[in-house]
Design a protein around this nucleic acid. Structure first.
Lengths: 146, 146
DNA sequence: TTCAAAAAAGACATTAATGTCTTTTTTAGT
DNA sequence: ACTAAAAAAGACATTAATGTCTTTTTTGAA
């Protein structure tokens, strides 16, 4: 209901790279998919989208793989939501009424406005770097143990 | 993202009946579907579920249709969500991690907990009757104008 | 320059949500 | 009893999200 599986895969994928990449090597999609127990080719498509948005960097060929971009850690979660789920949900009426707005509200308009704005605020202010806790030795478990 | 179309159809359907039924007659599914511009047979399945949960009453045959039950107006929105979307979304980790909980949280655990609890609180306290504003001459428009 | 490794791209499969159409059951009035 | 009207039920279709498999492109190193 709240967010798609794709969003979860995107976030876990980028966090995995951010956690391991500083060791120097590029991270291969095969390793990410294995360790996170996520469908490999499905994840690959999502990683590719993040590369297109410059949220990650990738290099093809031997010794290639995924690595951080200059903006990875500053990227807001909302950017990931845009890529994986789109922003429509934040702007469309919960009852699917196109004419619904604050001048002409549906019976749930203001309740949903509050809930969505809360989520929007949270995801607008939180960055990938904010979620990354390299000091926590169990961090990798917190994104990989299913 | 937040709620399914089915939920929206359910709420609009029951509000429509609640608004018009006091005039005495049962409301036919055909009328509801027409006036709300909703797929008739799809709506019928959702209305049937509400009848099974006693959120509405229905009678077959000539002069039949849908009418209010004793509990219609006291029914919480969360009950509609249960019927149409289920409650899993409120109890499962946004990253699909089965082991995620407050002792062992994923990186988004507490943020999502807050957002979901906000929605849960709102939908637990708001009833169908709370949304029904019979004094408002435009109320019917607010659930039917798409 | 060739080879192998890696991401990228694309074709196809599966599943869940949504939507349509037909048949069955129930019931009020004649 | 019969008929017609209505919900209920069930079969099937469409669409979007998710998942799998294969082919293409790129590139580092021998």
């Amino acid at each position: 209901m709240f967010l798609s599986k794709s969003f979860g895969y995107a976030l876990r994928g980028v966090l995995y790279v951010a956690l391991l990449e500083p060791k120097g090597k590029k991270i291969k999609i095969e390793q990410i998919a294995d360790k996170l127990a996520v469908p490999r080719h499905f994840l690959a498509k999502i990683m590719k989208k993040m590369v297109q948005e410059n949220i990650l960097t990738s290099t093809k060929g031997p010794y290639g793989g995924f690595s951080l971009s200059p903006i990875t850690l500053q990227t807001k979660l909302l950017h990931l939501v845009k890529i994986t789920d789109g922003m429509e949900q934040f702007n469309t009426c919960v009852l699917s009424l196109r004419k619904c707005n604050s001048k002409n509200p549906c019976p749930l308009h203001f309740q949903m406005l509050q809930i969505r704005d809360g989520m929007l605020a949270e995801f607008s202010k939180t960055s990938i770097g904010d979620l990354l806790d390299k000091k926590n030795p169990d961090f990798i478990k917190s994104i990989s143990v299913i």
